[in-house]
Each structure stands twice: as structure tokens, then as C-alpha cells.
């Protein structure tokens, strides 16, 4: 137990945690959106994130962008990577919905079938990058860790109250919060967003009001996927790596964050994600980094014991039976 280290650097550990948590929160939105509308845990969402990180890697390779590249190349490569990762992740999420889930819905498959299918999709995508692509294209596909060039060096931007904030931390937190605010505005104040909430609250009545359910479902997968794509971009800026199974642990954590905040609740994803990130960093300082995952789940169980619907409860599908 290293209390002094935690207390002495509480500010910087907190910022560290918030950076980590912001990424969890962005990924958590995908789980929460899909769950709110379909009552389905989309286990393939972790791979939607994974595809985003590989896309960033691919774009950097195309632009020949490395740590040594000039400012122009860096700006171009990161901008294109952000857009490409967003599109690739959204596209992957949409493909999973169209190829796997929609046919099951049309056949009125029971929930367990959806669950198995979701896990299946996740495995297919993991093995695509971990095995199939390697057979066709060779490395860097495969099971090894892949490093992504550091285009933006970590620099301390400013110091407040003894806490130094780096450029990367600022980009990650600001980017994630911006995306969440935009999504929140869209869902709560636009016509299409109202359609999403209507389907979440009462799908039959939503149809009676002229809402095309399939379109709302597609929209929700695309939105969640896009958020995971942005998360992937931010993640690669922060950690400079990808791997065929990189989605697994982040997916589990993001899902935990969603449940922690109240699954189906967009703002809950933010609260859950940030809280989880901070708790993890605190605990790895207090004990050791081996404890970080354990602590995350202890917190989850503790919160659910007192608030079974999560910190903020459900909101998208409020009062749905």
C-alpha cells in the first residue's frame, strides 16, 4: 500500500485516470446505445474498436507517417486517420448488424441466440486480424503486438496547481467529451434522436408513429461504431499500439463502465467510464498495476449491490417493461 505516492500525486493520477476513462466512456456509448434500443449486449463492439485502431495504423502507413515526419504530414495523416477510423468502425458495426443481427430479428430469434451470435461475430473479427489476414497479407497482421508510429510527441502543455497536463491528455479528454456532448445533443434534441428514444421506450408505438425501426437500429450501430472509431484514434495517440485482440480488455472495461453508469443511459456511460478510469489508476498506484483490473470489477460489484441499475439508472428506454 503506497498511500504517500497516491496522495502526493493525486492530481496527476486523477488526470491520468480521466484520460483512460474518457476512452472507456466513448466505447461504452456503443454498448449503451445498442442495448437501449435492442436489449442486446453487442459483444462484437470491442472488435469495432479494434478495427478502428488498425485503420489508424493503415492510414499512417499509406502516408508514410513516422515520428520523423514534418508537421504537414502529421496533420494530414492524423486527420485522415481520424475520419477513416470513424468510418471503418461505423462500417464494421453496421455490417455486423446487417449480416448477423437483422436476419435473426426477422426470424424472431430468442435473446440467447443473439448473445451467441454476438460472441461469434467478435471471434470472427478477432481471427480475421489475428489469422486470416496474415495468411493473405502477412505481417503486421497476426498475433503479435503492433506498434503505431508516435506522430505527436507527449509534451507538458501547462501546469495547474502542481499538476502537469500533457497535450495528449488534453486531446483525449477534450475529444471524448466533445463527441459525447454532440451525441447527447443529437439524441435529445433532434428529430432522428427522438426516433431513437421512441424505439428504446416502446418499439411498437414508435412504429405506429411512423418510425422505421430498422433505420433507427442501423443509425444506432453507426453512431456507436463512430464513437468507437474516435476512441480508437485517441487510444492510438495515447498508447501507440494495436493488436488483434486489443478490443477484448477495453471492451470488457467499457461494458463495465456502461453498466456502472447505468446501461442504456448515455450520460451514465460518461460517469461510469471516468469513474472506472480513475479507480483503476488509483488502485494501480496504491497496490500495483496487477490490481487494476481486479479493482475495476470490485467497484462494479459494489456499486451494483447498492444500485442495481447503475449510478444514473437507465434513461434511453425509461420505464420499458
Amino acid at each position: 500500500m503506497d498511500f504517500t505516492s497516491l496522495i502526493d500525486n493525486l492530481g496527476s493520477h486523477t488526470v491520468d485516470g480521466l484520460t483512460k476513462g474518457a476512452i472507456y466512456a466513448l466505447v461504452a456509448l456503443g454498448y449503451t446505445l445498442v442495448y437501449g434500443v435492442l436489449r442486446l449486449i453487442n459483444f462484437a463492439h470491442s472488435e469495432v474498436f479494434m478495427v478502428g485502431t488498425w485503420t489508424v495504423f493503415g492510414v499512417y502507413a499509406v502516408f508514410n507517417a513516422t515520428a520523423a515526419s514534418g508537421v504537414g504530414t502529421v496533420i494530414l495523416a492524423t486527420s485522415v486517420a481520424l475520419i477513416a477510423a470513424t468510418l471503418a468502425s461505423a462500417g464494421t458495426a453496421l455490417a455486423v448488424e446487417r449480416i448477423a443481427y437483422r436476419p435473426l430479428r426477422k426470424k424472431n430469434a430468442p435473446p440467447l441466440i443473439f448473445l451467441i451470435t454476438a460472441i461469434g461475430c467478435s471471434l470472427v473479427l478477432v481471427e480475421l486480424f489475428g489469422h486470416v489476414f496474415r495468411q493473405f497479407f502477412g505481417p503486421p497482421f497476426g498475433r503479435a503486438l503492433v506498434s503505431i508510429p508516435t506522430l505527436i510527441d507527449t509534451k507538458v502543455l501547462f501546469t495547474v496547481g502542481g499538476v502537469s497536463i500533457t497535450n495528449i491528455q488534453l486531446i483525449v479528454i477534450f475529444g471524448a467529451v466533445l463527441m459525447m456532448v454532440l451525441l447527447d445533443l443529437f439524441v435529445n434534441y433532434s428529430r432522428l434522436g427522438r426516433g431513437v428514444r421512441a424505439v428504446a421506450q416502446d418499439p411498437d408505438t414508435a412504429a405506429l408513429m411512423g418510425v422505421n425501426q430498422d433505420r433507427v437500429i442501423m443509425l444506432v450501430f453507426v453512431l456507436g461504431g463512430a464513437m468507437a472509431g474516435v476512441a480508437a484514434m485517441l487510444y492510438t495517440l495515447r498508447y501507440d499500439i494495436t493488436k488483434f485482440d486489443i478490443g477484448f480488455l477495453i471492451g470488457v472495461k467499457a461494458f463495465t463502465a456502461a453498466v456502472l453508469g447505468g446501461i442504456g443511459n448515455l450520460r451514465g456511460a460518461l460517469v461510469g467510464g471516468l469513474l472506472l478510469g480513475v479507480v483503476e489508476v488509483y488502485s494501480s498506484t496504491l497496490f500495483s498495476s496487477n490490481w487494476e483490473d481486479v479493482t475495476a470489477f470490485v467497484v462494479l460489484i459494489a456499486v451494483l449491490m447498492f444500485r442495481p441499475t447503475g449510478i444514473l439508472g437507465e434513461s434511453l428506454g425509461k420505464a420499458r417493461a
Binding site: 428529430r191 427522438r194 421506450q201 425509461k318 420505464a319
Partner: peptide, 17 residues
């Protein structure tokens, strides 16, 4: 079958969706 989580105004908006 009103949408319980929406305001009165939003429910009416849904009618004009």
C-alpha cells in the same frame, strides 16, 4: 402507449414525426 420518458411536447412531436 405514450412514451413515458418524453415530455408532453415531445410525445406530440412524435405524432408529427
Amino acid at each position: 402507449g405514450v412514451f413515458p420518458g418524453m415530455s408532453v411536447r415531445e410525445n406530440l412531436d412524435m405524432g408529427a414525426y
